[in-house]
Simulated scan of single mutants.
Amino acid sequence: MAYVIAAPCVDVKDRACIDECPVDCIYEGQRSQYIHPDECVDCGACEPVCPVEAIFFEDELPDEWSDFARANAEVFIPLGSPGGASGTPVFTEDHPVVSAFVPSQA
């Protein structure tokens, strides 16, 4: 289990979670950030600092954003586990779930 960054982060990308993460497992894409599921230690430090409430423990992810759990895992398939986001450049492409996401105009 790991924490997941979901839809509210798309096109917001506040970096408070990155600054708070003690294990450097939050990576940056073009439109969203992603938590590496194998590097996350489930400490939860990122969740309360997220200003848009986009971070959820995987078991608590709202059903309407369930695809974001897959996106947070699959985006790392070509990269593997580099062992820290700080030395990794911003992803050139987001996961297709994020790329296709259209935020609601509430």
Rank of each mutant, 00 (worst) to 15 (best):
V4T: 11
I5K: 04
I5E: 03
A6L: 03
A7F: 03
A7M: 06
P8E: 11
C9N: 15
V10A: 10
D11W: 02
D11M: 07
V12Q: 12
K13T: 14
K13N: 10
D14G: 08
R15G: 11
R15D: 14
R15Q: 13
A16S: 15
A16F: 07
A16K: 13
C17P: 06
D19Y: 07
E20C: 10
C21S: 11
P22N: 11
P22R: 07
V23T: 14
V23I: 13
D24R: 04
I26G: 09
E28W: 04
E28F: 04
E28K: 14
E28D: 14
G29F: 04
G29H: 04
G29D: 01
Q30S: 05
Q30L: 09
Q33V: 07
I35M: 14
I35H: 08
I35S: 06
H36M: 02
H36T: 02
P37S: 09
P37N: 08
D38I: 02
E39G: 09
C40W: 09
C43W: 06
C43T: 09
G44D: 10
G44F: 09
C46L: 12
C46H: 11
E47I: 12
P48W: 06
P48K: 07
C50S: 09
P51S: 07
P51R: 01
P51M: 07
V52N: 04
A54N: 06
A54W: 05
F56E: 13
F57K: 14
E58H: 03
D59Y: 04
L61G: 05
L61S: 08
P62L: 13
P62T: 11
D63K: 13
E64P: 01
D67P: 00
D67E: 15
F68M: 10
A69D: 11
A69R: 07
R70Q: 11
A71Y: 00
A71V: 01
A73I: 04
A73Q: 13
V75Y: 00
V75N: 00
F76Q: 03
I77D: 15
L79M: 13
L79F: 12
G80K: 06
G80M: 11
S81G: 08
G83E: 04
S86C: 07
G87W: 01
T88Q: 14
V90R: 15
F91M: 01
E93C: 00
P96L: 01
A100M: 01
F101E: 00
F101W: 13
V102E: 12
P103V: 02
P103L: 03
P103C: 03
S104N: 12
S104T: 11
S104L: 10
